[in-house]
Amino acid sequence: MMSIKKYVNNLSDEDLKRLYKKMLMIRKCEEHLGEATKNGAFPGAVHLYIGQEAIAVPLCDQLNDSDWISSTHRGHGHFIAKGGDIKKMMAEIYGKSTGICGGKGGSMHVADFKKGIIGANGVVAGGMGLAVGAALASKMDGNGAVSIIFFGDGAANQGVLMEAMNISSLWNLPMIFMCENNQYSEFTHTSEVTSGKIVDRAKPFGIPKYEVDGNNAVDVWQAAYQAVQRGRNDEGPSFIEAHTYRQRGHVEFEYTFLSRNYRDQSEVESWKTNDKDPILRLELYFIEDNKFSRDDIEKIHKEVQDEVNDAVKFAIESPEPDIASAMEHMLEE
């Protein structure tokens, strides 16, 4: 794989540090969730974003609260990257009253509309229409806001993607199709269930396409920059396929119910090296280019870990939801 250095041109050291810290925040939240789920610390299942942080963060880094994102069942990373509050996210996953959705959505539905986070989604490709609808609203408002659908290689096989690309191109909507190809559709390798190249699916719709190394934050940032500018300038939709790897299972704890392995552990380990893992690669770049010392990096780790620990503490100490809230919010009064 290419060193990140080749891609760094219009990004400052401060930019990279900001991306790095956010990616680390996602990583440490997810690591906590991966551990805590083993002890049954919270009620539901979690789908972790570990290994894919270099996709959500560089794209969302270029967005503001009036831009929209719609995401997936693997949605914690998108939520954090778009500025979602980690305390409220953690409390939500713990099913508490202080959660961003009052404990009624859980891991697969973390959302914060005030921050343009339409939310994670439990249905594969379920967020597609929501993002296109928000893009239509932005287009009609003429405010230069963009709308992003994060989706996986699995969702790329849902028919609604074709409908979304067709209508986005037809109406020149400020849409960004951000496909995170993490190589697994649940427990099946993508190559077994996907024909052709996913990114090529944009071509017949006349949608500009970018194929990037999804484990290289800078590569993603540059493609995202093109896509975001196109959207802001009313130039229509863009499609990015970011190649990455799902370091964790489809869902945590999956080996307790799967009858056999679906991939070799050696394959998983091969993506955790410091030239492949998106966070280690940034650290390697920082050190090789003398941007930061090992100590600086340790310090950042500690800062981020402290913040995650605070969020976890907040979640654990928060009260359970009021029973009466189960009956609220189905319809607007």
Partner: peptide
Amino acid sequence: RDTPICENIMTGMAVGAAAAGY
């Protein structure tokens, strides 16, 4: 707007557009 024949996304677009203020 005249849409393509695509109920699958039409129903979802309504949710996104409504959430965004329409």
